[in-house]
Every structure is written in C-alpha cells, then in structure tokens.
Simulated scan of single mutants.
Amino acid sequence: MYQTFFDLARAPFPASPDPASLVIYGDLGDQLGELAGCLTSGQGIAVLTGPPGSGKTLCTLAMTRDLTSSLVGICLRTGQFNQPRELLKSVLHGLGHPFRQQDDQDLRLAVADAIHGLPSTSNGVLLAVDEAHRLGMPVLEELRGLTNLDANGRPLVRLLLAGQCGLEEKLADPQLDGLYQRVRGQARLQPLTRGESQSYLKSRIRFAGGDPGSVMTDEAVELLAIVCDGSPRCLNHLADASLQRGAWSATRPITRGEVLDALTESRQLPLRFVEPSRPSVDTTSAPIATGPVEMIQTEDGFCSVEVGAGDAATESPPAADTAPAADGVIGDPAARSMDESDDGHHTPTDEKSVDVTAFDVVLPEANSPHGEHDRPRPHMGLFSRLRRATNRSTDETTSD
C-alpha cells in the first residue's frame, strides 16, 4: 500500500465507511444535529436521504455510534428484508438474543420482551435501517409497529431510516400514512461543491496523519474536485487510485498526471465522472434570418419563400457589398456575379437588385407521379433544390 510512501498512519480513503473519518461540510452538521435531537428526545422517526455515494451509510454509522451513551444502537446495513420475520430476527440478533424458527407473532413478542428487558440505565433502542428505500410496505409497517413500544409514556424504539431519494416518495404513499405522519426529522444529503470537495480531500489526508501539501498538489486536488462532481464515493475512489499510481511511479506529491491516468482506468467502472475540460460553445456564427415567412407559388413552377417580406416592403434592402451572408445559403456577392437561369445558362445579374431574404424552391414537375392536382406542398419537405432568387422584374423583362 501507499501509506508508507506518503508517511500516512492509515488509509485516507478506505472503501469501507469509517465513522471516525466523517467530514462535516456545509450544513451537514446542522442536519445531523436535527436528526440526533429528534432521536434522543423520542419525538418521532428520523429520515436521511441522498443520492448514491453521498455518504448516507457513513452518517448512519456515525449517529449510531455517537448516540449510544443512553441508547442501545442497532444498525441494519441492508434493506433486503422480504418478510417482516426477517426484520424481527435481525433485531433480535442485534440485541444479542437467540432466535428460533417461530412465526411472526412469536418473533414480535420475543423482540418486545428483549427491549423491555434492557437495563434501567438505557432509554431504549436506536434502530437504524440503511438502504430503507428497498423495504416493502409490510416491513415498513412492521417498523412502525416497533415504534409503538413504550414504558411509562417513554418510547423505547427510536427509528432512523436512511436510503436513496426514492425513500421519500415511498413514505409519501397514502398506504403508509401511519408511518409518514410520525416523521419528525428529515435531512437530504446534497453533492459537495468544488470548494467542499477540496476541503473534503484535505481533511481525509489530515485524518490519516499526513500533510495535504506533501501528498497532493493543489492542481491535483482541484482536478479531483472537478471530475468527481461532488460525489464523496467518486472522490474516495479516484483519490485512492491516484495515490496508488503516485506510489508506483515514486511521485510525491502526486500531480494532475497521476489523477488523469487514474481517471482513464476508472472509466471502465460504473462510476460517474465528468470530463476535465469541455469544448467552448461557438457563438461567432452568423445569426439565422428571422421574420415573417411568406410562400408564393409562381406560374413557372417555382415557390418563392420570402423571410421578412413584410419588413422588406417598408425598408430598403441593405447594399450587396455590406450585407452579411448566411453561411451555406448565399455566397459573397463579389465572388458570385453570375446566376443560373431556367435554361441552365449563366447570365450576369445586377448584384444590387438581389433580395437576400428571398429564395426559390423548385417543386416536382406537373407530369410527375403525384399528378397536377395532388402536387405536394412545399412545407411538407418535398423540395428538389433551393437557390438564390434574382430580381423578378429583370427575369420577367428577359422572358418577354
């Protein structure tokens, strides 16, 4: 491992959550304090939610550890309880009581006897259930029933439910009104900001007994904060992989290079990282002409599409040598002094008389398979080609 190379007393980014390494950032301390007050006072159920990898399990373990001075802590790390009896057996196991193959009612009585038999110095049980978003309604109702246990008006079971954000929607189901109405404390973990991500990384290194400046450069810390996008799980994984690469290459402190190499390898894992740099958006392209659109079919089989025709009637068109050209539609007037006529020959045109907002769309011939009466309309997309229109008065004079 790399602890010796970087003079660390322990692994700063362990895969298994360690309650002692909990980093308080932003308003996390206030949120956990609110949940702790709800549990210790016995006011009701506490709910902790957050996206995957946001640190829910770590917070749950930390609260279970810190609140055991007057409560017996039981933390069920999985929500894979298909039946209420499986939950009851796990509670008995957490209390240190044996359980036998009994029916549901016998298990309920055994759990109640075990809780009522706790020492008088204990205020009850702190029951924390992680991954609670996986629980079905029968198991959630069984948990609600456990919160009914009391002694002289003092609740004996303090319930903490932790899970992904879908837990909030599940608890809001009308069938669980009896459980949801008992919720008195609720907190949702949010992704870390870039500043909080950098503080998180440095705090974990200090927790491991190291100096952040001698382990990672500021550029490496900043890059980790950018690509991990506020996910503590991604930060832990990528920082750990970067330190391993630094130890293999004898690089201390690690730089952006080690982080980029670790990021390339981590792309194969089901973790979400953002690109370290994104291409800038090109805002220098010419704007598309806007305005009223008028489509007029002419006698020679053309359809004239005029953009901003209403404005052109009241305002004189800009000069050809200064008018901006739309990319891919109208070329440079100085470079295009010839226009294609109907007979396929090129005839010179007066560039100053060209309307840059008018275009001709050629429709299918009258003897096409569509026939004369069911000729497709231009707005249906059946255009054979699009070309620049010339001054109509000049064309009419030439044809006459």
Rank of each mutant, 00 (worst) to 15 (best):
T322A: 04
R392T: 15
L39P: 11
L159H: 09
C165Q: 15
E34G: 04
Q80A: 06
Y2G: 08
F359V: 04
C228D: 09
D321P: 10
Y2F: 14
P19C: 12
H379P: 06
E142Y: 05
D104I: 01
G331P: 03
P84N: 01
T298E: 13
Q190K: 10
P348E: 11
S285T: 08
I226K: 02
L140S: 02
A132Y: 07
A132K: 07
V274M: 09
E142L: 02
L263K: 11
D311F: 12
F383R: 12
Q190R: 14
D177Y: 12
P12M: 10
D27C: 03
D350N: 13
E351S: 13
A46R: 04
D130M: 02
A320V: 06
A326V: 06
T290S: 10
L176K: 05
P52Y: 03
L269H: 12
T298P: 10
R77L: 09
L76E: 03
C234L: 06
Q268K: 09
L201S: 04
G50Q: 03
D113A: 03
D342G: 09
V23S: 00
N391K: 03
C75A: 07
L179R: 04
L238V: 03
T78Q: 10
M63Y: 01
D350Y: 05
L386F: 02
R385Q: 05
A358D: 12
S54C: 15
G185S: 00
F99I: 04
S242Q: 03
L95G: 07
D173Q: 12
S304D: 14
D18T: 04
G257F: 10
P276M: 06
E168R: 06
R336K: 11
D261Q: 08
G79A: 04
E142S: 00
E275P: 13
N367Q: 05
T49Y: 03
A286P: 13
L39R: 02
G117M: 08
Y25M: 12
C59N: 05
L363W: 07
R377S: 04
S41L: 08
M338R: 13
I74Q: 00
K56Y: 08
S203A: 13
P276R: 05
H346F: 12
V329C: 06
P317V: 05
T78C: 10
L109Y: 10
T347I: 13
E351A: 13
P155E: 04
A62C: 01
